[in-house]
Each structure stands twice: as C-alpha cells, then as structure tokens.
C-alpha cells in the first residue's frame, strides 16, 4: 500500500513539474519549489514503516524540490541558486508559522474532532519543531551544495543523466544523514538510526531516478 502511494506521489510530482514549466517556464519552476516547500511543511511529520525501519513522509516532495533546482541550474546557470534557496526558505517557514499560529487560537465547539487534530498536529508541537528545524538546515545547506556538485559534474561531463544521478547519489546520502541524526538522535538507538538513514536514502534514490524523466522532458521541451 505505502509503496504504491509513494509511486503515485512521485508520478504526481513529475506531472506537476511539467505542468508548471509549461505554464510559466522559469517562474513556473520557482512556483513549483514554493508549492512543494509549503506542502512539505505540513505533511512531513508522519512516520511510515518501510522494510522494518521508520521513514518520514514527504520524500517525493523533497526530491521534487531538488529536481526542480537541478532543472533551473541546468537551464539558467548557477546564479539562480540563491533565489532557489530563498524561495524554499520563505515558503517553508512562512507556511509553518502561519499554520502554527492558528493552532494557538482557541477552537470552536463545532467540528471538535478536526479542531483537536489540527492542534495536535500544528500547535507548536516540539517533535514537529525538531523535524522543521532539521529540514531547514539539511535542505538549505544541501540545495547550495547540490548546485555546486551538479554544476561541476556538468562542466566535466556534459551529460544530463550523469550530472543528475551523480549529484543525487552524493547529496541525498548527506541529506539523509543530517536529517535523521538531527531529528531522531536520542530518540532511537544507533541500529534504528542507521536503518532509517539507509532506507530513506534508498527511497530517495529510486524517486530521483524516476525524477530524471521530467528533467529530460523539460530540457528537451525548451530545446524545441
């Protein structure tokens, strides 16, 4: 069930990238980063079981941000990197803040189940806060690093497939380590943490491989 939904989410992200690019070209890709960052801020707190280890949700969304960043760097150069990072930070932080601010307003007696669930999820829960900070640090740092790695691979070997997969294999491994350690150290033991890093990395690699398809399509679309 979970594998199927992850696949559906990945396909949805691929279509979304193509749709936004077709609608507004470069600005569409920036909008796509903003939408994905906003959604990441509200969906990444749930844990699911994959191969006996726990994984946070939102991996296709996270990979979507990196794929978008790769497409922008591929088409428009490394100068866009700063704008991509600002785009991510502003949308991720503002959505989290707004949604959590409403969590502190007292709820109405109507529709109580939904109100309580909202407060449980978003009213500045400490576990959420830790995941939120981990995402900010890991994604911001690695979006910058990803840009340089992608660009240097592209300069040495001018192959779209090579630079995408190469940068993804390196960057996503570091991202998995930083995120899992920051979010779950002192919560789970070393074996569990190691498993979480490996499983998270493997899922992201698979999503990244599927994600090279929209990169290829969008780059070719531009060439036409």
């Amino acid at each position: 069930m979970n594998y199927a939904i992850l696949l559906v989410e990945t396909i949805l992200i691929c279509f979304m990238l193509i749709l936004f690019y077709k609608q507004s070209k470069k600005n569409g890709l920036y909008l796509c980063v903003a939408v994905l960052s906003s959604i990441l801020g509200i969906t990444s707190y749930k844990l699911i079981d994959i191969s006996g280890f726990q994984v946070n949700l939102g991996l296709p969304i996270l990979m979507g941000i990196f794929i978008c960043s790769n497409i922008i760097i591929q088409r428009y150069g490394l100068d866009e990197l700063k704008k991509i990072v600002i785009d991510f930070l502003v949308s991720y932080i503002s959505v989290f803040l707004f949604v959590n601010l409403v969590g502190v307003i007292s709820y109405s007696e109507y529709n109580l189940v939904s109100n309580l669930a909202y407060d449980e999820l978003f009213a500045y829960n400490l576990v959420n806060l830790r995941i939120f900070v981990s995402h900010i640090i890991s994604i911001t740092f690695l979006l910058c690093y990803n840009g340089y790695v992608y660009y240097s691979i592209r300069r040495n070997k001018n192959s779209l497939l090579f630079s995408n997969i190469g940068s993804m294999l390196v960057i996503q491994f570091i991202e998995s380590i930083i995120f899992v350690l920051m979010s779950y150290i002192f919560v789970y033991d070393a074996t569990e943490l190691f498993g979480m890093i490996v499983v998270r990395y493997l899922i992201k690699v698979v999503i990244g491989l599927i994600g090279t398809l929209p990169v290829y399509v969008i780059v070719k679309m531009k060439d036409k």
């Binding site: 939904i5 949805l12 509200i42 749930k46 844990l47 699911i48 994984v55 669930a117 909202y118 576990v127």
Partner: peptide, 24 residues
C-alpha cells in the same frame, strides 16, 4: 491530494501523528 495520501498511508508503530492526520 498530498494531504489525502499522507492520511491514508499505513503508519509505523511508533507514529504519533497518523491519527491526527486522519481525524483532521
């Protein structure tokens, strides 16, 4: 769409938020 997929995924045993997503 993403909120729906998040709420219908089978949670891990230690997950605390699944029930909140489903209720919401």
């Amino acid at each position: 769409m993403f909120l729906i997929t998040t709420s219908i995924m089978v949670p891990s045993l230690y997950d605390r938020f699944s029930i909140s997503y489903q209720n919401m």
